[in-house]
Amino acid sequence: MIAVYIETDGGSIKKSSLEALAYGADLAAQTGDQCAAVLLGSTSDVNLGDSGANKTLTITGDALSTFTAETFAAAMDQACAELDAHTIIISNTYNGKSIAPRLAVKRNAAIVSGVVSQADTSTGFSVRKSCFSNKAFAQVAVNGENRVITLIPNSYEVKSFGLSASASTSAYVGPQATVKSVSIDKVKGKIPLTEAELVVSAGRGMKGPENWGMIEELADILGAATACSKPVSDMDWRPHSEHVGQTGITIKPNLYIAVGISGAIQHLAGVSSSKVICVINTDPEAPFFKAADYGIVGDAFEVVPKLIARAKELKTA
């Protein structure tokens, strides 16, 4: 059995978990196996069969009402024992990455994080993972019977499988949490950067934080998240949570629009896996153009309003 951890946020299932489920379902089909979706704490009436699950198992208990790595890893361990799961797929989110290593030790499993494509099971079990901060990929052979795979968000397509999943529930029997949540500070109503399919990002070329209105407006019209370069977050023009790059967040959206960012190697490390990259920069020699699909050599203060205007026209057309 292949078990997939389904992460929920405010009661709704994260898209990255549905990607992990599609990955698990395809892997099951490829190896003549079955795939189970595991929900922790909260039940969901979403039909996970259509997302690829042959069955769903929900572990319930008060200890799972808030996330902690130890309780969620223990609950996943319980679920995997009940399901007799040998392969566990977890999305490479902050919470997923906290559970996965603990779970690997509990299951005596090999673990590979940051996986970007479906496993090659023609001989043994081998996966491709991102390494050297997105500057390379490694093909990793996974030995042994048990394995934990963490899948980078936006690496795998969510699909409709048309299955119907049988559902069961078990009470959590693991330990109580010893790490306590004190408070949560979330940016409300914004698309989390790691999950965003479209991202508009800006750098020092914006000259100051007061000029970010047009970046936010463009992002709003496109339904994109906003991001920024390291210098901009270092100068506190923008919050740290928006910093993408080698020492910031790594993202791989379908579209990355970079405004006034030169494209230093450290910045590219965080964004180079984006499917389409657009670069707007006054300097035609900016290294970012070499990594771009589309480029506009021009002043952000002239170009961005034109993009906003055209996007508005198309939206109302």
């Binding site: 902690t68 919470n95 949540s181 408070s183 949560i184 500070d185 940016v187 698309i191 989390p192 949570s241």
Partner: peptide, 8 residues
């Protein structure tokens, strides 16, 4: 955490 920070 995704989209924010948590004090624990």
């Amino acid at each position: 955490i995704d989209g924010g920070r948590e004090t624990v």
